[in-house]
Design a protein around this nucleic acid. Structure first.
Lengths: 331, 331
DNA sequence: ATGAAAGCGCTAACAA
DNA sequence: TTGTTAGCGCTTTCAT
């Protein structure tokens, strides 16, 4: 920071000097402790106001080893799922007077580590983390060093960690049942490149289909619209008999739908499409997309609630939120 | 923070003690200064590694009065424009080794103030700010107190502030010209409830239409899909002659389009629709939406570049990015 | 009800 | 090449 032109900020000492009391007294008033007369309080508050005094959170954090800010770590910003989730987190944080700092990892473990380091170094009070690192030991190390975390859709056994998950096993089961019910016999799945412990959708779908005696073709691809489109095109070229595609998120589903239509096939008559997440886009495209709806707002709020509990000393129960299949035109 | 179970983090002093040198020497090594032997360097680095030492950014920030983290303040997270912008900011920040902390204000001046306060209190190095506060004096106060800011699409004359804008006056002019060219004579505009200094779209559109001798109906509404839909419905009820609607963002445009179609009218035959921003949604809906395309990625990158300049002591020129009308099916 | 002193972890300024 | 001293702004004992 070379040359920030700044009027020096007022400090606690400035306020104390102005009022003619000790810094300790000002500190007491500012922090709402007890042990001062009403008259003193008034004078301190007046000085605070006049000097536009703002406590320096670095100094406070240095000594208390924690600020009241929460962090929220997400993997991608260009999937609407995450902004929606962020909205829930933001709203809930605000209601509790907490400032939320968001950070994006781009699904890169190195960036994830840098971000968590930075958050710890800034002594945030705790973080909500959506991790995609295959290696959980990193998270464990941060927890060891004292970072309190709520893991979204992930579990880690550690006193500083708790979790809020989504019942995507059940969601995938619902999808499978629905596809069988509407007569599909050659389903394919476009799964994301997430770590094994997050592949509950894959298991839910495959196990249910197997129970129905239906085989499943599976492809692991990037969680983007473009990747979904490419994968679906290849899939249909190699397996022209495919009559249903279940994608791990709505973006991939949309990409797949475009690929299907590009081959001259019709959705849902020739190929049914099912997505996951329930982003707004799914309602507006033609045909509208059948999807597993995840209540992102609720998920975000729940995560904040858990983090508040965790950072105030208790150990919140793991939460698993239900999901719901929303049947639209594409399947 | 009640009971974070934490193994105490290693400090600079721990490292110094382990190596048998003074803290100052460790500090020198860690910060890449000069004035130590290669042998010392090796031993310090080894100890740093072994103790998993991480510098405490609060302590460092307290003394240097700045960290190397940048803040990015946005107004809404549920308009895809902002995640897209965030992507550009994030990518550019990462390329320069900067961690970016995002925060959302929900278009609430009080929240905006809280967020900026918190960022200052955490001694971030600087912030990119998308403000919607009608009152610029608040931003000026933060600048006075030393916060260096890049304002997105906003201007403030202050040595700690610079700006990156979008040429939406020109964009609106392009829209007006296009609508006239395709024979529209009763255009309406759904403008956002942004502060007057940001109403360049409104002026660009109105002035151009006036030059063409065409009157304009204008409504100021919320920047959401729902508000756009409601406003368009009212508009058509009161002014059935309207044959074109220009909305301040794509979400409103989509809402307006739904309202138009709900009245049995056809887009674009009966009513042309033009949006603004160029979010992905506009390509996928039916009919696809004609819109002013803003290169959000570039906008984000430019903002980061300006902030890097500003925080390193120079005074970046104001930037104005061009926009482009993308003609699709809706107009 | 109030204050004095010490120190959080680090770096700046100055010695040696 | 290295160490010493002081202090960033605040909170925490412990006195008074």
């Amino acid at each position: 920071m070379a040359a920030a032109h700044s009027a020096a900020r007022a400090t606690l000492i400035d306020v104390a000097a102005k009022v003619g009391v000790s810094p300790r007294t000002v500190s007491r008033v500012v922090n709402g402790e007890t042990g001062f007369s009403e008259a003193t309080r008034q004078r301190v508050l007046a000085a605070v106001d006049e000097l536009d005094y703002q406590p320096n959170l670095l100094a406070r954090g240095l000594i208390r080893n924690s600020s009241d800010t929460f962090g929220f770590v997400i993997t991608m910003i260009d999937d609407p799922f995450f902004p929606d989730l962020a909205l829930g987190v933001q709203t809930a944080g605000l209601e509790h007077g907490r400032t939320m700092f968001f950070a994006v990892t781009n699904r890169d473990p190195a960036v994830e580590e840098q971000v968590l380091r930075s958050m710890m170094a800034h002594s945030i009070a705790g973080a909500i983390v959506f991790s995609e690192d295959h290696d959980q030991s990193k998270l464990a190390r941060f927890a060891d060093r004292g970072l309190q975390m709520v893991l979204v859709d992930d579990v880690l056994d550690h006193p500083n960690v708790c979790s809020v998950s989504i019942d995507l096993y059940d969601g995938a089961r619902q999808v499978a049942d629905h596809l069988v019910a509407v007569g599909r016999t050659n389903p394919a799945i476009l799964s994301g490149s997430s770590p094994p412990r997050k592949q509950r959708r894959l298991r839910g779908f495959t196990e249910t289909m197997t129970a129905h005696g239906v085989p499943v073709i599976s492809r692991s691809v990037d969680l983007t619209l473009e990747a979904g489109e490419v994968a679906a095109r290849q899939l249909l070229a190699e397996h022209p008999e495919v009559d249903a595609i279940f994608a791990f998120n709505d973006l991939m589903a949309l990409g797949a739908m475009r690929a299907v239509q590009a081959t001259g096939r019709t959705v849902p008559d020739d190929v049914a499409i099912v997505g996951c997440d329930g982003i707004q886009l799914t309602e507006f495209v033609n045909p509208s997309i059948t999807t597993i709806h995840i209540d992102r707002e609720r998920l975000g709020r729940t995560a904040v609630a858990s983090l508040l509990e965790l950072t105030s000393g208790s150990n919140p129960e793991p939460v698993v939120l239900p999901v719901e299949l929303v049947v639209r035109e594409s399947a």
